[in-house]
Simulated scan of single mutants.
Amino acid sequence: MKRRLALTAIALAVGAAASLSACSPGTASGTELVVTTFGGEWQKNFTDAVVKPFEKENNVTVKQVTLYSSDALAQLQAQKSSPQMDVVFFSGGQETVAAKDGLLAPIDPAALTNAPDLISQATAGLAGGRGPVVQITPMGLLYRTDKVSEPTSWNDPFNPDYRQHVAFTDLSNSYGTLGMLMINQARGGTIDNVTPGIDAIGQSTRAGDAIITKTSSDLQQAFAARDIWMAPYSQDYAETLRKAGQPVGFAIPKEGTTGSFITANLVAGRSNTELATKFIDYALSAGAQEKFVTGMAYSPVNTKAVVPADMQSKILAGPTLEKLVRFDPEQITGNAAAWQKQWQEQITR
């Protein structure tokens, strides 16, 4: 009896140890993925386009954690020795920093079945250990179609005809930074000298010709209740405003534009890399990309994705996307604090 009890105790101990090992930090169940999300409408649409169908097809559970890009990077850095997430989405170029810090696992293009169908911008970062671009939303000028003719230049927000009807976005918002960089470029500045852009916006706001918004919801409120007619912002949000009943158009200025490149990144040190890679590949499929178009008004990175007729005039797609300016994420990250200081000095003085 004593021998039988001893053997039972050993078996229970081994089982408990195995259970603890399976749940220990840095590992994950083979049937669960932990992925980040941007929350709100993005999460709702991404769940419908990728998460639910992927769960059903692969008999897995996808746990979503709401983290904006800078917070997601901070979490990865804090968890470096014991990562808790499998896939991280970035929209501001943070994948460059994460890859250099060894926080990401490189993805072999051969592991992505959709790689041959993607635009070159989507896979350009794989060689550097970064994840592929799964969504693109170009920057442009949002404008009230019942108040303003279609704008043609990044200088149009400074037209005296639009005084007190323009909104710029704070640099704490990545769209605000990208909009400022395009205005800066149109006024002769460079990524190493953003004074022309920041000074122009600062002078406009100090004169009472424009307001500053911080978030997407602030901008929506400005169009709905503050008589705003024009704002540098993103393609996807123009559609959000239209769905909210606002008569808003989206124009790409003649000087060209940049965009927000959303990447899906494989976290290093996790046990579910094969399943996580499959999840990323699913997000790159033509079917998922088509849902990004109709649900979020994002530009598809899969060339086989079909853009519905009613969306073709609302989004950029195809070869045009290859012409988007993509500012160096490292330069943006490295200069962010200095730009913010310069911005605050101009906006608040």
Rank of each mutant, 00 (worst) to 15 (best):
D192F: 10
I262D: 13
G129E: 12
T273C: 04
V248A: 06
S70M: 06
M85N: 07
S153H: 08
F54E: 05
L76A: 03
M1I: 08
C23M: 13
L178I: 06
A283W: 01
A268V: 12
S260F: 06
P232C: 04
D146K: 07
H165T: 00
S285T: 09
G102I: 11
Y233M: 07
D170P: 05
R270F: 12
L171E: 06
N45Q: 15
M180H: 01
A317D: 15
I201K: 05
A186C: 10
H165G: 00
F250I: 03
G92Q: 07
A225W: 10
S81Q: 13
K80L: 04
A13M: 12
N159K: 05
Q203A: 14
T195S: 15
T215G: 06
L126N: 00
P25G: 12
Y237V: 00
I136Y: 04
K291S: 08
S24L: 09
K80G: 02
A224N: 13
V97W: 11
I332Y: 00
V14L: 15
N184K: 08
A231L: 03
A336I: 08
Q246T: 00
S299R: 08
A115H: 10
M85L: 14
Q94E: 14
R4H: 09
L266N: 00
D71E: 14
P116T: 10
T8R: 11
S285I: 05
F250L: 07
D192E: 15
A317C: 09
I107Y: 00
P300V: 10
T123H: 01
S21T: 12
P151I: 01
A288W: 02
A124C: 03
G140Y: 05
S70K: 13
K2Q: 12
V88R: 00
N193Y: 01
D170W: 11
A268D: 12
F223C: 07
R144Q: 13
S81T: 13
R270E: 06
Q340D: 12
T8N: 02
S217F: 11
K291N: 11
L142C: 06
N272E: 08
N193F: 02
A49L: 07
E95H: 14
P300T: 08
K147H: 14
Q94T: 08
I136H: 03
L181W: 09
Q342N: 10
A288G: 03
I228C: 04
P232K: 01
A72K: 00
